[in-house]
């Protein structure tokens, strides 16, 4: 569904992503593990068109999106839910969600249906619909961020560290929600530092270190791998 071929991204002279190859299969959850600064966010920004690679190609559903603009990429169904949520803090929860459907605004009935789906996935957001997004708790804000991304009707959803800064119980719920979103047919690429929870729900995993893929494969095998356990699970 998504194919990265030798993608390289630089900030000036610094190579943040170095010849990365990734391949996602339709309907799966793929996890991208990596420490802070490994390049996960840079890679995601490149996929969603905020950054341009200096070389390599990105193919989404058979289309070359290497040089496409963010708005075109969202229209194609590749939606990025960013690290740090990037909500519109002074707008209401509902407006945040409706802006998620910005590219589908003409289809009013479809937008309403998507809004209902988000509310049934996160019932608390229905009660908070008129509250300013910035007034919500961290976990609720993360729900708004995921809900907003779902409003764009992703076929491939990029989730950048959704567990960041959340309480352990909320993190557990977040992973359950991600598994549910995937079960309803959305392909997911999940960047995480929380290796244990992420590998549990994943079909496939990549490990990124200093801009390079150093390991990839079956999540169960990675969970058992000593290097992975030492670096990302801490046992």
């Amino acid at each position: 569904m998504l194919q990265l071929d030798a993608v390289t991204v630089r900030y000036g002279n610094f190579t943040a992503i170095d010849r990365v190859d990734i391949s996602l299969t339709h309907g799966e959850i793929t996890v991208l593990l990596g420490a802070n600064g490994a390049g996960k966010t840079t890679l995601f920004k490149t996929l969603s068109g905020l950054l341009r690679p200096v070389s390599g190609t990105i193919i989404f559903d058979g289309r070359d999106i290497t040089r496409s603009k963010p708005t075109e990429i969202v229209r194609l169904g590749l939606v990025h839910c960013p690290e740090g949520r990037k909500l519109f803090p002074a707008l209401s929860v509902e407006k945040n969600l409706l802006l998620g459907a910005y590219v589908h605004a003409r289809d009013k009935a479809g937008v309403q249906r998507a809004l209902e789906e988000v509310y049934s996935l996160f019932p608390i957001l229905r009660d908070k619909a008129q509250d300013e997004a910035g007034s919500l708790s961290g976990g609720q804000q993360q729900m708004v961020a995921i809900g907003r991304a779902l409003m764009a009707r992703p076929r491939l959803l990029l989730l950048d560290e959704p567990s960041l800064g959340l309480a352990p119980l909320v993190v557990k719920q977040m992973f359950e929600v991600i598994a549910r979103i995937n079960a309803s047919g959305t392909t997911v690429l999940l960047a995480e530092q929380n290796a244990y929870g992420a590998l549990k729900i994943a079909h496939k995993a990549y490990i990124l270190e200093q801009g390079r893929i150093i390991l990839q494969g079956d999540p169960q095998k990675l969970l058992a791998d000593d290097r992975v356990r030492r670096a990302y699970i801490g046992i």
Binding site: L50, P70, K86
Partner: peptide
């Protein structure tokens, strides 16, 4: 308003 509050968030929602 969204673009004023969070430029990157607005881009990611496909706002031109």
């Amino acid at each position: 308003l969204a673009m004023a509050q969070n430029r990157e968030g607005a881009f990611l929602m496909g706002i031109d």
